[in-house]
Every structure is written in structure tokens, then in C-alpha cells.
Design a protein around this nucleic acid. Sequence first.
DNA 1: TTGGTTCCCTAGATTGTCAAGGGGAGGGAA
DNA 2: TTCCCTCCCCTTGACAATCTAGGGAACCAA
Lengths: 110, 110
Amino acid sequence: MAKSSTPALLQGTLDLLILHALRRGAMHGYAIAQTIHVLSTDVLRVEEGSLYPALYRLELDGAISAEWGLSENNRKAKYYSITKRGVKLIAEQQETWSRLSEAVNRVLAS
Amino acid sequence: MAKSSTPALLQGTLDLLILHALRRGAMHGYAIAQTIHVLSTDVLRVEEGSLYPALYRLELDGAISAEWGLSENNRKAKYYSITKRGVKLIAEQQETWSRLSEAVNRVLAS
DNA sequence: TTGGTTCCCTAGATTGTCAAGGGGAGGGAA
DNA sequence: TTCCCTCCCCTTGACAATCTAGGGAACCAA
């Protein structure tokens, strides 16, 4: 009944976080999750069960594109890059995030 | 496939917004929605289909309590007040919100 | 008496995330 | 060699939160 555990993520922000990570260059999924984890100073954790469906959605939507390669550790890995459409999406979603999160903060500050 | 419309709310924040509104005193559901709308300077809109289930959840959880009364406009209305447990919940959820939203901002700023 | 507003509520669909699995392949240790 | 750990991919099923789209009653002004 009561909330059992604190969420690892704010719902709706995952796509934006992924796209933002990819701005730094092509990356495989595993590295995207690590990047987000590190950049958020260990606060945000992207579960693989959330990550891969999200990557699939973004690719379907044309926001990212994928191609197989070899990782630094010599493993088969799928490298994702952001597309033009993805860059546009970042801007939109970042704007939405700012609007909404600032609105929440205004309410909480009142 | 693509997102059709911008969300009216950040998922996971509704309970906190409701509880926060009720800190100002007992209110009926309709007024809670209006209060959030106004305090967020028209950015956040709570749909009734989200609001009433949320109120039901919070009451079940013991975070708020309800009693029927008469509104300023002379209508039958259900007045909600925050409970001790609700006050505790505000603190917890506000902390969670801060942690996560700041983490998102750190990632986006990188 | 008609229509707008205020106030309550629900059913169904959708979406995003999570938990919990499975699997293959590289590399180091024993 | 064998074993295990890490890296890297993925899927399935359940769940929680929200939205859409309704329905309904009562007050009030025109």
C-alpha cells in the first residue's frame, strides 16, 4: 500500500538522459547506463530492463541509430549514435523538463 | 510513435503536490486541482481522472483524511485534510524529488 | 428551463519502469 | 583445462501512474 522503495529514476526522463549521454559520441548500451550513473553522482541508476526497451523505442522513433562494433574490452557491442531528429528531440524534451520541474519547484516553494 | 503531446505533469509528483497544497488547510478535490494549477503559474494541470484516484490512494494510505462538507459555492464537497503521516510523507517525498531532480539537472548540465 | 459551472466519480487503455530471468563470449585465476 | 567474473545483449510479465472519456447531481443566472 505504502510506497515500498524510492524510485531509481524520475519517470519520463530516461529518453532525455540517454540522448544527452549520446551527445558525447557513439556508445553502447552498457556504457550509456554507466555514464548516466556517474554523471548523476551515483544517484540515478538505469536498469537494463528499462534501458534496452528505451533504446529500442528511440531507434524506432529515428532519434538514434545503431551499428554493431567491438567494445574497448573486445566484446561485441551495439553502438548507438544520435541522429538529427534526436538532437531536435533533446531540445524539446529539455524544454519540457525545465518547464515542468521548475513548475513543481514553484509549487513546493509556495 | 512519436510523443503526441507534452505531459501535463511529471509522473510521481502528484502525491507530493496534493499533500503540499493541503498544508494550507483542508480543501476539496476541485480546489486542490485549481490550487496546483495557479501555484504552478498555469503550467501543471491535474486531470480529474488522475486527481480522484490519487486522493483515494492517499486516504487509503492514511496520509489524508476526508469529510463531507459544503463548499463556498454551496455545493456538497469532500474536504481533505493532511494527517500526521501525510506530513511525514511530504518530507520524504520532497527529499526524493530534490535528490532525483537535481541529479537529472547535473546530468543535463554536463 | 436551459445552460454553464462546480463538484464527485469510474472504466479502460496506455505508457514507462522494474524485477527477474536467460545467454554468449572474453579473460584471468587455479 | 576448468571455473568464474565481468561485460554486453535481450525478453517476459507484472505493476503503478496517468490520461481519455465518459456519467451524474446540484446550484445559479439568464
